[in-house]
Amino acid sequence: MFVLPVRFERSPRLHPMLSESPHPVGTRVVVQGKRGPEIATVRGEASEPERQARYGAVLRAATPEDLATWEDLHRRAEDLKWLLRARARERGLPVKLVAVEFTLDESLVTISYSADERIELSSLIGELRAHTRARVNFAAIGPREQAQMLGTLGACGRENCSSTHLQDFAPVSIRMARDQQLPLNPEKLSGPCGRLLCCLQYEHEQYLDLLRDLPRKNAKMCHEGSGACGKVTKLHPLAGTVDLQTDQGLLQDVPASELRRLPEQAAARSPRREPREAPASTD
């Protein structure tokens, strides 16, 4: 047995599947996933299975009949998506229907949607009964999953990371933007999904390493070269410099390696330790 990484249509995430033969990269295969049989594409080389790992299964290489059925189901799903959107608007349902997907055997139809609050969509099932006998599964998704499924362009001009290569949504915090000395502008720090940019995490560890060699913001420092003293107002981690607002009101861009703390600041950071008391006698 072999393990093949496969990718489904609406997500870049790779799913390991057991296969009896090592299909070449790019081969479209029929797999048995959690929802049922679906079409996926092989995106990596075959490897050996690991013990105690759970895998789906590659049933076979997709035949022309499989691909024709899949294309027909895809067209029907798109028609149903627009029909359900119209019916949701007529009923005043505050919901966005993102995608409709059939399994290859049409035993299950999954309707992915996003909504700001909990909402009941069972009234739409009757609309589906006239077009399919498949079981209906409503799946609520978040803003990042929505951007992943729909695909969009990021501020960099390229397709968003969640649609191209991200395998998981790692936690992203505003602290990452502060550590990278970025302006805290919500419009520039948010992606198309309205959440913090996933790419803020990519270089965060490197910035933390660079910040260890820089003084803290608002620290009182003196420049060895000019002898000027003042307050650090801004850090430039990549350049290894800081902006020093001198006591005379001048703003200087100076290397962090040429700065020294004021004597009182150094004493405050390294308080003198009191001598330990001798342990009490146990006699």
Score class of each variant (00 low, 15 high):
E78Y: 07
D79H: 15
A61D: 07
R60G: 06
R75Y: 07
V58S: 01
V58T: 01
T63G: 00
K81C: 02
R54T: 09
E50F: 03
L73V: 06
D79T: 15
L59S: 03
E65Y: 01
R75F: 08
A68N: 01
R51G: 13
E65R: 10
L67I: 07
Q52W: 14
L59N: 01
D72P: 02
K81W: 01
R54L: 05
E78C: 12
A61S: 11
H74D: 04
A61K: 13
A57I: 10
P64I: 09
H74S: 08
R51V: 12
A68I: 02
T69V: 10
P64Y: 09
E78N: 10
R76W: 12
V58C: 02
A57D: 06
A61N: 03
T69Q: 09
R76N: 15
E65T: 05
R54C: 04
R54K: 08
R75H: 13
R75M: 08
L73D: 02
T63R: 08
D72N: 10
A77S: 15
E65I: 04
W70L: 04
A62Y: 06
L59Q: 11
A68E: 06
R75E: 11
A62T: 04
Q52C: 11
L80R: 08
T69H: 07
A62G: 02
H74N: 02
V58Y: 01
R76C: 13
T69E: 12
E78A: 15
Q52I: 09
A68Y: 00
T63Q: 04
V58L: 02
L80Y: 05
G56A: 12
L80K: 06
Y55W: 06
G56K: 11
V58P: 02
K81L: 03
E71F: 10
E78H: 12
L59I: 14
T69M: 10
V58I: 05
R54P: 02
K81N: 01
T63E: 04
A57M: 09
L73H: 05
P64M: 07
E78T: 14
P64C: 06
L73E: 03
D72W: 10
R54S: 09
R75I: 01
Y55N: 08
A61H: 07
A68S: 07
R60Y: 06
P64S: 07
E65K: 09
A68V: 03
P64A: 06
L67Y: 05
T69A: 13
